Simulated assay, not measured.
Amino acid sequence: MAQAWRCSGLRWSADGGPALVWDGGRRSALTWGKRVAFGVAPAAEGGVRRCAGARGHVCPSAAVVPGRSTGARCEECARLDRAHSVAADTLAGDPRPYRVYLAWFGPGMTKAGITAVERGPARLLEQGAVCFSWLGTGPLMAARRTEELLRAALGVPDRIPYVRKRAVRALLPRGEEERAAELARLHAQAVALDGWPESLEREPFRPVDHVRVFGLGSLPPAVGEVSELVAGGAVSGELVAAAGPDLHLATAAGVVVLDTRLLTGWPLLPVQGRELSVPVRKYGAVEDAVVQEGLF
């Protein structure tokens, strides 16, 4: 049996683009047109998905986790990971400065969020934000209070499901100004609100567009998305776009979206063919996804 590799996820850098990261730190840079191909080890040869651990620590029980889980963690490791995240509000003493942002993923899909200043735009790339603008900078708790103010006053959520983001990527407005129009309106409303913490410095509207970074300019509509990996299954296709954790792969059946979070925890092997032998959720329409039974 060939050496199996374990993927720890897709990482973005503002200047280097997307790359798959493997246990041990090795990176596989991803460029448009590159063939992405791998197989999952058969069950008889160790093809089992195991917990990815938390915060750089190996799962003590090497627990088996479901194929459809995007977190790839057992309950205990998921609890540990959550307890040390900014989203859990357990890091109130974090001295680092934070930024509040508005991110746009498509018509009617804008969210508010926060990220550490030192991370730059990495958080927005990881989420697949088509365009975004900073709103303000300040201490963590001031940024958190502002995020909550925006959600209540503007009706913008702090999360948007990936299935909704994927559904509109091939149908985005062509012009940058048109893509930024909804952000501009919400940004103006946001900075005019009363109740901003005094320690948070407001920032002007400067939209950043990621369509070229993600390769979405001429993206064909996807016919479906991989719903899970399975022991003995394989994925192969040419990379035509990437956004957030998603790879858009051109296969014999059309463009299929692979959420790279589904790779974590599986032992993966190189393959030579052009096979797509994992369950795929077929899109019945742009707005909706219909579960397909069996293989695509």
Rank of each mutant, 00 (worst) to 15 (best):
F38G: 07
A41T: 14
P42K: 02
A43P: 01
E45Y: 10
R49D: 00
R49S: 02
A52K: 01
R55W: 12
G56F: 10
H57C: 13
V58N: 01
A62C: 07
A62F: 07
R68C: 06
C74S: 02
E75A: 13
D81K: 13
A83R: 10
H84C: 14
S85W: 14
V86K: 11
V86H: 14
A87Q: 01
A88T: 01
A88L: 12
D89H: 08
D89S: 07
L91W: 06
A92Y: 03
R96N: 08
Y98S: 08
Y98I: 07
V100G: 06
F105E: 08
G106L: 04
P107T: 11
A112R: 02
A112L: 14
A116M: 05
E118V: 14
A122K: 15
A122T: 15
R123I: 05
L124Q: 02
G128Q: 07
G128N: 04
A129S: 05
F132G: 09
S133E: 00
W134E: 00
L140M: 07
M141P: 04
A142R: 12
A143N: 09
E147L: 10
E147P: 06
A152H: 12
G155S: 09
P157V: 13
R164A: 13
R164C: 07
K165W: 04
A167Q: 11
L171I: 12
L172E: 03
P173T: 07
R174Y: 03
R174Q: 07
G175W: 12
